[in-house]
């Protein structure tokens, strides 16, 4: 259940005497590092850019001794919602998120299943192989893909040497390169929750299914798959949410056609110094991501009620 992501719920069930401190501490943490920054970003998104320090106008202003003027600039939001470019970036980001999540699922599920059903002594080494890349910098790993995908890179040279292609494939700086990079980078986030789920699967359930006349493939569809749904959901959210806002991978591997919100945000913030517009972008992105999350949680709790 996605609710488990909330540390608060886990903590609040234990250690009764210090209950208030216990519940209070995580909430305080959330207040300080989530709610407060959110309020600040929200406030900036309603301001206007200016060349000053800070680079946005204040929302409130004393017109004279007794009149406090509040200026809320909703223009950033209307621009973000209505402008073709931003809309395309949002749609493209969601699309990339969706395709990458599916890609991770298609590759990650068999991997997680194989690890979960591997002999006991193989599981830890196999899991280590999934986790090991994390020990190298994310940036370096994405850079490495440039070396692999570029015109006279490893992949093209390999394919040319084999005689499978006559001229180098143009993969780098295309949407394909973004997909490759994203699926590669986020695969562990799919595999690990799926593994956690699948390794708990009671194998006698599959024996029971076989005993009742179910061929292995049908047993998988009717027993394993439905029971691993929480793992699929957890993994998909862990991949989808960060991918939609991903900046580094599309920036390094993508081309001019890989419009993504993360990149737009970066440009507005650092190149155009338009903090209010960047903030508005960030908030719309947040709203887009919260909606499916809440919907999923609702759906799942309804499943549990039944």
């Amino acid at each position: 259940m996605p609710g488990e992501f909330l540390i608060t719920r886990l903590l609040s069930r234990r250690w009764r005497p210090g209950r208030w401190l216990n519940i209070g501490l995580p909430y305080f943490w959330l207040l300080l590092f989530f709610f407060l920054p959110f309020v600040i970003v929200f406030q900036i998104s309603l301001a206007e850019p200016q060349i000053a320090q800070p680079p946005y106008t204040a929302l409130t202003e004393w017109v004279d001794e007794a009149v406090l003027q509040i200026r809320l600039n909703l223009g950033n939001f209307t621009l973000v919602m209505e402008d073709e470019l931003y809309r395309a970036a949002f749609l493209n980001s969601l699309w990339v998120g969706l395709v990458s999540t599916l890609g991770c699922l298609l590759i990650g599920y068999p991997m997680a299943y194989a690890i979960a059903t591997a002999p006991e002594r193989w599981r830890v080494p196999l899991l280590m192989m999934i986790i090991l890349p994390f020990w190298t910098s994310f940036l370096i790993r994405v850079y490495a893909w440039i070396g692999i995908l570029k015109g006279n890179g490893l992949l093209n040279n390999f394919l040319l040497a084999l005689g499978l292609i006559d001229e180098p494939l143009a993969i780098l700086h295309t949407q394909t390169a973004v997909y490759i990079g994203v699926v590669y980078s986020y695969l562990p986030f799919m595999v690990l929750p799926l593994y956690a789920n699948l390794s708990r699967l009671d194998l006698t359930l599959l024996e029971a299914a076989a005993d009742l006349g179910c061929r292995p493939w049908r047993a998988f569809l009717r027993v394993t798959l439905p029971l691993s749904l929480p793992g699929i959901l957890a993994g998909s959210l862990l991949v989808f949410i960060p991918v939609v806002g991903e900046f580094v991978i599309p920036d390094l591997l993508g081309g001019p056609d890989s419009l993504m919100v993360g990149r737009m945000l970066w440009t507005e913030f650092f190149s155009n110094k338009d903090w209010p517009l960047a903030s508005a972008l960030a908030l719309v992105l947040l709203a887009l991501l919260v909606v499916p999350f809440v919907a999923l949680q609702r759906w799942q709790s309804r499943l549990e009620m039944e």
Binding site: T204, A208, D211, L212, C214
Partner: peptide
């Protein structure tokens, strides 16, 4: 196993946790 005219009641019962009692009985 899936072809044998034999059914088994498992020690742990091995009921499918995601199905109702009815669906469990209906499974075979």
């Amino acid at each position: 196993a899936y072809r044998r005219p034999v059914n088994m009641m498992f020690q742990s019962y091995a009921l499918f946790p995601h199905m109702t009692v009815e669906a469990n009985v209906e499974f075979g």
